[in-house]
């Protein structure tokens, strides 16, 4: 049976909480109107106050600001509703059902690069299938670039099929 890939939580899941709270707010306005009209509370209806505003020839600054905010929020909701959940880990070939996060691959690559002779510091960044290793080399160790490529490739062999790019900078004496 095919299992679903591990995925991040979709954006819509967070926005849905906001949408549910908005619904509760609307329900509160409707309930207050009913309570006010039936005389259960002495306060004036909020809904009537809002409807009275509709007779204005032009909306006030507050209504306009609220309207534009509502339109932007609605657009965000609509886009998020169709955004798929992103995959959180990369699959690894083998008999085990193993998945590795891109951050873990970066950490392994940085460690492999830092252990190469002549490298003072290394940091990695993964974008899609491209791993960029930025290394700070000790003076007169330009040849370490090839060693970094080899070390990172050997360390990641078997878990991540990525294109490795090394960007090296020589430290000042």
């Amino acid at each position: 049976m095919k299992l679903r890939d591990p995925r991040r939580r979709p954006v819509v899941s967070t926005l849905a909480v906001l949408a549910a709270l908005l619904l509760i707010g609307l329900a509160a306005v409707l309930a207050q109107h009913a309570a006010s009209e039936r005389g259960w509370t002495g306060a004036d209806s909020w809904l009537r106050a809002a409807l009275a505003v509709l007779d204005d020839p032009r909306p006030s600054v507050w209504v306009l600001t609220g309207g534009i905010a509502a339109a932007l929020l609605g657009l965000w909701f609509l886009v998020a509703a169709f955004l798929p959940a992103r995959r959180s880990h990369l699959p690894v070939d083998g008999i085990g059902d193993l998945w590795v996060s891109p951050r873990a691959v970066e950490a392994l690559a940085s460690d492999a690069a830092e252990r190469t002779p002549g490298v003072l510091h290394a940091a990695s960044e993964m974008r899609r299938r491209r791993l960029k290793v930025k290394a700070l080399l000790a003076p007169e160790h330009e040849a370490a670039v090839a060693d970094i490529l080899e070390a990172v490739g050997a360390r990641l062999h078997g878990i991540a099929e990525v294109e490795i790019v090394v960007q090296a900078k020589e430290a000042n004496r």
Binding site: A19, L23, L64, I68, A70, A71, G74, F77, A80, A81
Partner: peptide, 15 residues
């Protein structure tokens, strides 16, 4: 969320 988004967008467009 899509339905609520559409309603908010319609309300904003009306204003």
């Amino acid at each position: 969320t899509a339905v609520i988004g559409l309603l908010l967008l319609a309300a904003g467009a009306a204003v």
